[in-house]
């Protein structure tokens, strides 16, 4: 296991932790908006860390570039979808959770 393997391994584990946090947030949070927030965390950071680990392991620059492009697509798509859903939920009168 070379140094890059160890670096990639800890990036993978961190990415896995963020995915777990996103899923736990999706299950535990009380209303749509907070779940949306937890969900986009898993998108951006979880996938970002996993892609960073994969880029370390990638054999060629082309593959690394494709991985980063996939991550950027998921980033922008996640942000746009989160905004769309939140705006429509607000307009449809889903109350914001205020305990």
């Amino acid at each position: 296991m070379t140094a890059t393997d160890y670096a990639a391994a800890c990036l993978f584990i961190l990415g896995g932790i963020f995915f777990f946090a996103g899923t736990a947030g999706l299950l535990r949070f009380p209303d749509v908006y907070t779940r949306l927030h937890a969900l986009t965390k898993a998108d951006n950071v979880g996938l970002g860390l996993i892609v960073a680990g994969l880029v370390l392991q990638a054999e060629s620059w082309l593959v690394a570039g494709k991985l980063l492009l996939i991550w950027l697509l998921v980033l922008f798509a996640g942000a746009c979808v989160a905004h769309l859903v939140a705006r429509r939920a607000l307009r449809k009168g889903i109350r914001i959770w205020t305990e």
């Binding site: 996103g22 749509v32 949306l36 969900l39 898993a42 998108d43 979880g46 998921v74 996640g78």
Partner: peptide, 10 residues
């Protein structure tokens, strides 16, 4: 739909 979105990323 949020769950479906998270499934997509996962």
């Amino acid at each position: 739909m949020l769950a479906a979105q998270l499934f997509g990323t996962t």
